[in-house]
Structures are given as structure tokens and as C-alpha cells.
Design a binder for these strands. Sequence first.
DNA 1: GATGAATGAGTATTCATTCAT
DNA 2: GATGAATGAATACTCATTCAT
Lengths: 193, 193, 193, 193
Amino acid sequence: MGRKKVLTKCEIFEVTKNILKEEGLHGVHFKNISEKLEVGRSTLYEYFSNKDDLLLAYMQNLMKEMNDKVNGIEDDLPPNEKLYHLLLILLEHSQLHQIDQMIRDVQSSNKHAADFYREQLHADLMHTYSLMTNWIEEAKDQRIWKTTIDSSLIGDLMFHSILFPNRDRLGVETMARQLFEMIEKGMVNRSVN
Amino acid sequence: MGRKKVLTKCEIFEVTKNILKEEGLHGVHFKNISEKLEVGRSTLYEYFSNKDDLLLAYMQNLMKEMNDKVNGIEDDLPPNEKLYHLLLILLEHSQLHQIDQMIRDVQSSNKHAADFYREQLHADLMHTYSLMTNWIEEAKDQRIWKTTIDSSLIGDLMFHSILFPNRDRLGVETMARQLFEMIEKGMVNRSVN
Amino acid sequence: MGRKKVLTKCEIFEVTKNILKEEGLHGVHFKNISEKLEVGRSTLYEYFSNKDDLLLAYMQNLMKEMNDKVNGIEDDLPPNEKLYHLLLILLEHSQLHQIDQMIRDVQSSNKHAADFYREQLHADLMHTYSLMTNWIEEAKDQRIWKTTIDSSLIGDLMFHSILFPNRDRLGVETMARQLFEMIEKGMVNRSVN
Amino acid sequence: MGRKKVLTKCEIFEVTKNILKEEGLHGVHFKNISEKLEVGRSTLYEYFSNKDDLLLAYMQNLMKEMNDKVNGIEDDLPPNEKLYHLLLILLEHSQLHQIDQMIRDVQSSNKHAADFYREQLHADLMHTYSLMTNWIEEAKDQRIWKTTIDSSLIGDLMFHSILFPNRDRLGVETMARQLFEMIEKGMVNRSVN
DNA sequence: GATGAATGAGTATTCATTCAT
DNA sequence: GATGAATGAATACTCATTCAT
């Protein structure tokens, strides 16, 4: 009695996600997680050996989820369409923006594990990043996109667009559409002359 | 009379800037600041009555510097050129990106002062933001830019571009130029058809 | 489940009482409390969220104890006898004398709780005070006591008698008896003339 | 320009007195003293080698002032009249009530001096105390006062009456008169029967 | 003398983590 | 497993005091 015996990592991730959204990376404490789950604080240690483990695992989980979707993008689409889908997926996983800070912050006591996870996280992130860059290059090679603009700059733009506060106001779909239109066509009003 | 000063607020800001860059907002402690400056920790309290005061003052200082430059933009330039200048100035003040988080985090004990500074910071920030949005609207009104894309989305993009890691690699000038070209003309390769 | 408790709020109150007696209100620190209890300093925070909470809780506890006894005084006794009982109870709760200073000093971070407790403390104190004053007035109304002497002056006297250092030497009972005799009959030697 | 060159111990005592009244013993800091005097904090060290020195000197000064008045009481008055005068003088020097706490608190680094002053303070205090007790005994010996009530209890009462909050409301004279009437004649209403 | 600057020692508080049941 | 209890390490902050000019 008390609480249901089954506490799952999934539930912990869910709560973590909410706290992360509401209070940011440094607002995540085992204290508030356990309170929200109505579980003893130390119970969390049965699931994660320390705080950083939890965060890393959470991020990795998120990353995996996202990577699965990314890998689901049909490979034979034109590169700019693939990039549009990628942008949409990124916007749907806005929590990712903390990953960068986390990779720096995390200083687990269990150095080995932490470093391992950290590197893997970084690798996962880089995977998406380079996928994106590749597709941009592809678009350039196929003469769909111009070559005068640095590919990784576009990459940065797409990746950081998850931070735009207006995402919530516009909605993910609209934002993706408009942003992609701007990326491709630019702001200049061609209907005029 | 009195001992010679070995420390200035300016030096403290300098160190703060570096720590902020290297370790993020939550990496700033009076401990590491004082260590880097090779002064006693309590000495810092002679300059700022607490940590939040320091951070707020730092941000305000930065903000003022930036606002001065922004206000120096000639008013009778076409809106898109003004926006280009604004983008350049933003990129030169990339530390600003923590301002948002700070405004939330900071809860100084000296409530009065803190609230005052916080509001002023926010006002300063909004000033720049709305200037930017106004110019975007102006560009739309003058039919220079198209109206199909949300103005604040462009605002977000410009503001968040200070976060792009490739800024350091490309250099501020190049990045501004390329980014602005993309914003205006888009990626589509028109030389082809 | 869970480790066995080695510490109770009661024990903390006990130690607090001793420190309060020996070193006064400002001699109370979590450091010396924890040392006397031979527990880690932070352990105390599991019981009271901060120092002021502890002090307020301590005082409230004391107050409650005393009020219970005060309320046990039979209402249909003559007012002067009721006052005698009250004096006795006050003398048995001499730690109360710090309450006044505390009510001023305490500025808990948990403003809400602190203000609430503070007000309640003050209310409890006033309750006793006004009970005392009422009984004095009653004694005057019933012509048992003379009216030429300010009632609250007697109140002050009774309340502050808990501070008399000779309380320890004489013992509470003796002191109460003698003091009350003096209050009622005065020092003048009537057996002479 | 700046401040008048002459800062006197007297001015420092004056400010100390006010702070002591408004904020209590632990509200006295060199910081606020120097601020109220519009003097540099370290300047105070030209006058007193440390905080405790200041407090001890202040108390001693007060004590001396009071003792002078006490010694001015004509020796050939009846003991109860002498006690009345003493009570009046005590009430006029209510700041004395902190002396007790101070004697405990003060832990100067200059142990020698501190102990010396402390002892002297204590001696001065005891002088008055024993003078008071002597006169009470005298009153008993002369059959003016009854012997059934402990002399030092009356001493405590008179000494602690300086703490009664109603002192401010009633005024020193009235309070002394009423209190002394009660001490001598008691509260019992003799005009009745 | 006077004072601005610097500092050390002490306390409060938070939180991840370990331990015993 | 689950959990309540205990704790150490780290940081914020205050204030008396010393030092150099």
C-alpha cells in the first residue's frame, strides 16, 4: 500500500521532462522528482545510481526516440524535403536544447559510466547533426540550394530553432512551414517587380 | 587615504564573462570568481551585495553597451539594412543569450533592487526586440519583404543566432553576411534555371 | 523499513532549551545544537526547515504547554487566587521571557509560515496577558484589590518575575508564595503598631 | 568638508544607545554605528580597540553615571525612602537590563582587558545590588518592613522593573510611585471593611 | 587621526548520496 | 525493492578586524 509497487523508468522520465520544461536543467533534483512521483527520495537510486545517470539516460532516451524518427525519413526523397521533415522532428523534441549544457555540466562520480554515456550522447547528437549537414551538402550538390552559404550555419539555424519562444505560439507545424519557406525562398518579396 | 584599490568592478565583470562562457550561468560562484581574481571571497561582497546583484549588474552593463550601439544605427536607412546592422551587433554580444534564463532565476534578497534591475533588464531586452520587430514590419510595409512569414519568427531567429556555435568558426562578420543573405534571398539556387 | 530514528523533535527542543538558558537567543546555532546531539548539522534540516522554524516551533510548543495549564485554572475561584495559580505557572515556564525578542528577531525565509506562527505566538501571549489583566480588573471590581495601581503594571510584574535570578535559588513554589504575599499585603510590617 | 574632525566617544555612546534601544544588543555592529555617525568603519577602531571594548565602555559609562546618582542618595534617610529613590534611578537607566546578557556574551580577543572590564562591570552592578539588599535588610531590622519575604526577591523585582514595557506608557515617576506603593502596602484593599 | 580596501572566520542552507531496516 | 533517516560537501553571506595610504 502507499503507492503502486511498480515505478517505471518511464514515469521518472515523464516527471523529469516536466521539471526540465518548467524549471530548466538546474531545477531538476531528486527531491522534487521523488515528491512529484510520491516516492521516497532514495527509491530513485534503485533505478539510477545517481542524478547524472538519470539525466544522461533521459537524454539518451529522448535522443533514441528522435533518432528513430529521423531514421524513418525516406532516404530517396529530395534532400530539401528530407531537411523539412528533420526540422519538424527537431521542433517536436525541443527538450534537446539542454543537451549541450548537460554534456558540459554532468560530472558524475562514476567517471567511467558518465564519460561513456556522455560520449555516446555526443555521438548521437553528432549523428543527427552530420546527417543534416550531409543533406544540405546534397542539396547543394544537386544544385537545389546555393553554395554561398555555410552548411553548418544552416544546421545551427535548424537545430537552434527549437529554442524560439514563438514555437509555442505558432505551433510546431506552422512554424516549421514558415521557417522552411524562409530558409528556402528568403524574405525578399518577389511578387512586387 | 585608504588602501590602494586592487580590484575594479570591470575586472570582476571580465572574469564573470569568462566563467559564464566556460561554465554557464550556474557555474558562476563567488568562489571561483574570487579564485580567478586572487582575492578573498568576501572581498567581492564589497563590490556587489550578493551574487544576483553581480549577475544583474553584469547583464545590465552588457545590455547598456549593446543598446548604445543599437541606438547608433542610422534611422533613415532602409529597414532591411538596419536589421543587418542589428544582427551584427547582436552577434557581437553573444553573452546576452543567458539573459532570459537569468531574468527567471535571479531572486536577490534585496528584493527591491533586484526587481528594479530585473524589470529594467527586461525592458531593455524588449526594447531591442520590439525595435527589431518594428523594422521587420516596416520592411513588410514597404514591400521589401514578404508578409507570409511571421515577424516574430524572424525576430527569434536573429536573436537566437547568437547561440550558433559556428559563430566562432566563421567569425561574426561572415556569419552575419551569410545569415542575412539567407534570410533575404533564401537557399534556393536561382542561378540554375 | 527506513533506518531507525535516533533523533526526535523533542530531543532537539530539549537541547535548544538548554542553549537558550545558557547562551541566550543568539547563542542558538544549528552548529552547537547538532554538536550537543552528536548528529550532523544538516540532519537538523530534516526536522526544521531552518533556524527560525525551529525557534518558533520551540516557543509554540512551550506556549501550548503553558496555555493548557493556564486553561486548567478553575474559573470560579476568586480572582486573586486565580492570579496566584497563573503566577506559579508562569514561573514554571521561565523560558518564555525570550519570546518577545524572538517575535521581533525571527525573519524566516518561509515568510508565510513564519508570519503565521509569529502571529499565533503573539496571539497566544496576548491571550495570557489579557487573561491576567482581566482577573486583576475583576479583583478590583470585587473590591478585593485597590484601584490606585495600574493593572498592567501588576501584569508586567508578574510576567517579568520569570526573569528573577533568585527563582532558581528559592524554588518556584516559595518564590510564588512570597511574591504573591508581597503583591497582596505589601512589605509594610503591620504586626508592629 | 567631509565630516567635522572631532568625533567623541560621547557621540559614539549616544549612537550606541539608540541602536541598543531599537535593535537590541545583537543589533549593534560597527557597520551601523559608523553609518549613523557618517564615519568610516575603521575610524571607530581609533576609539575602541574592538566591538566588545566599545560595549563594555558604554555599559561602564552608563553604570558610572548611575552609580554617581545612587551615591548621591542621602544616607540618613529612612531605608524605604532610600529604596524609593534607588528605584527611580534604576527606572531612569533602563538600558542597564542588557548588562546581564552582555556580561555573558562578551568574548573579546583581548582576554585580559575584557575580563578586567567584565569583572569591574559585574562589581559595579553588584555594588548597586548589594546596596539595595542592605537597605532592604535595614528596613527589616528597623521593623519598617516585614521579614517574611526574601530580600533579594524584592531586589530582583526592583531591578527587573526597568524591563516593564508599561514604563514608557506610565512615565517613570508615576510608575515608580505606584510600584513602590504596591511594594509597601500591597494590593489588598483596606478601605473596605 | 581618518579611512577605503581587503580579508578570515564563522554560520546558514541545499542537495546528492549512503545506510539500515 | 522500497524507504525514512542521516550526512558531507559545497556555497552564500555577514561582520569584526587589519592594513596601507
